[in-house]
Amino acid sequence: MTEPVIDVLARSTAVALWTTLIAGVLGISLGTALALARVGRRGILIAIVNTGMALPTVVVGLSVALLLWRTGPLGDLGLIYTLRGVVVAQVLLATPLVTGVTLAALRQLPRELPEQLRALGANRIQLVLRMWLEARLALLAAVMAGFGLAISEVGAAMIVGGNIHGHTQVMTTAIVETVSRGEFGVAITYGAVLLGVAFLVNAVLALAQRRGSSWADG
């Protein structure tokens, strides 16, 4: 029996939003730390982040599945074939992306900005907040990129989540399954719905971007 599309969609959206939230916090923090780190110390870390941005999703899915497997080192956590496990895998994929975009965004700011803010008396928190505000548009783009990755990701979700009906099936894995059954009409419907949700979330973020700009300017 086919599960109502709304349930699959809700699951997909929840996974993508949790992934975006966690990867956003981690990625923006890491990207900021890298942007403010002394030049000599960050070269290797930046190389790791750049590599992470190109990680194949099935490789990450496989690695996470092996770790979370019941007999694996993190098997006791009971995350294999759960949505939480899918979120873990997708966070691993999205965090380097958000970190990389954040780093690029902050490096686009005037090189003298951090020291000028310090010289004007900003403490560490005030400095970071102001730099985020200065790079707000690009940072929201980083978050959007993280959401885009999470909502469209299929390899890791399939391997770690197992595409279990009514439990871990998300829109992307459902599309793969319906296509494999030859139900192209259903797959196209799922795809259209998924695109609609992605558009809606990005529209909300774009609105927040615009509001953020006017607030910062006011």
Binding site: L113, A119, G121, E134, A216
Partner: peptide, 23 residues
Amino acid sequence: VAVRRRIAYTAQRPVLLSTTARR
């Protein structure tokens, strides 16, 4: 921060924030 806040330093090239002059 306390001692830095007693000193104001202006760089040769103004680094202004992306907001109004007053802000």
